[in-house]
């Protein structure tokens, strides 16, 4: 049997909101260590990787070595509309069951339950090695969200140029070109901090459609971390409630290459 209780149900709601437009069906891989999910978008350009450690849950129980729960994202997000922002969520599935039961509770006054039919999903797992990035940028989620949204008005691609001292986001579109520079700002108020760590400068192009999609996970944490390498996909990482110990929602995006 699998049973997990999360007192802050909105965390799960935010996770599903963050990935629903990239993947239609996903597998929840449950084990005694927590919940993992890996899914690619249909064009194999981006990948979602979720890790929820048991620390994020008030109660966590998985009797088997592993269980795979296939979820349709549209149905899950529909179900989470039932979940109020202050509700706790309990997920429950029998070992050979065909459903995942969600219970949303606010105190004892209001209890909603929904049994979701599970799906059998063929998923391709990619091996993603632990990568040391040449450049790491930590910036406020609100800033990331704003940059991606504003830049999408001018073009389809955004160049991220990370150098010692700061990071430049630029777009070159039909109406003209623009750029936004964020200075390495370690000594300001936490919520405004921008940390740019550079071993070697990197400049890469990415599709704004995907970067904007990742921004939908912004409510999950205060800061987002970008990892850039000249020869591997971009990593966009949101730590759950800004605590890596609880887990993270990561997105990987293949860069564009100039002809």
């Amino acid at each position: 049997m699998f049973e997990a209780v999360l007192s802050n149900g909105s965390t799960l709601k935010k996770i599903f909101e963050g990935i629903k437009d990239l993947c239609t069906d996903v597998n929840f891989d449950v084990s005694s260590e927590g919940i993992k999910l890996q899914a690619m978008d249909s064009s194999h350009v981006s990948l979602v990787s979720l890790e929820l450690h048991t620390d994020v849950f008030e109660q966590f129980r998985c009797d088997r070595d592993s269980m795979t729960l296939g979820l349709n994202m549209k149905s899950v997000t529909q179900i989470f509309k039932i979940c109020g922002n202050d509700d706790s969520v309990t997920m429950r599935a029998e070992d050979e069951g065909e459903t995942l039961e969600f219970t949303f509770e606010k105190g004892e006054d209001r209890v909603s339950t929904f049994e979701l039919k599970l799906m059998d999903i063929d998923s391709e797992h990619l091996g993603i090695p632990d990568t040391e990035y040449q450049c790491n940028v930590k910036l406020p989620c609100s800033e990331y969200q704003r940059i991606c949204r504003d830049m999408a008005g001018f073009g389809d691609n955004m160049t991220i140029d990370c150098q010692k001292g700061g990071v430049t986001f630029s777009v070159d579109g039909e109406v003209g070109k623009g750029k936004i520079f964020l200075k390495h700002q370690p000594n300001v108020e936490e919520k405004h901090k921008v940390i740019v760590t550079v071993k070697e400068g990197v400049e890469l192009d990415f599709a704004l459609r995907y970067l904007n999609n990742f921004a939908k996970a912004a409510p999950l944490s205060d800061h987002v971390q970008l990892g850039l390498n000249s020869d591997t996909p971009l990593s966009v990482r949101f730590d759950i409630e800004d605590k890596a110990t609880l887990g993270s929602l990561k997105f990987f995006l293949a860069p564009k290459i100039k002809e």
Binding site: M40, S43, H44, V45, S46, L47, E124, H125, L126, G127, I128, N157, D205, A207, D231, T232, P233, F252, A254, P255, K256, I257, K258, E259
Partner: peptide, 14 residues
């Protein structure tokens, strides 16, 4: 126009 790379270029299936 730059060409969109795909993740299969970088990672292998496991």
């Amino acid at each position: 126009t730059p060409i969109q790379n795909n993740l299969d270029e970088f990672y292998t299936l496991v």
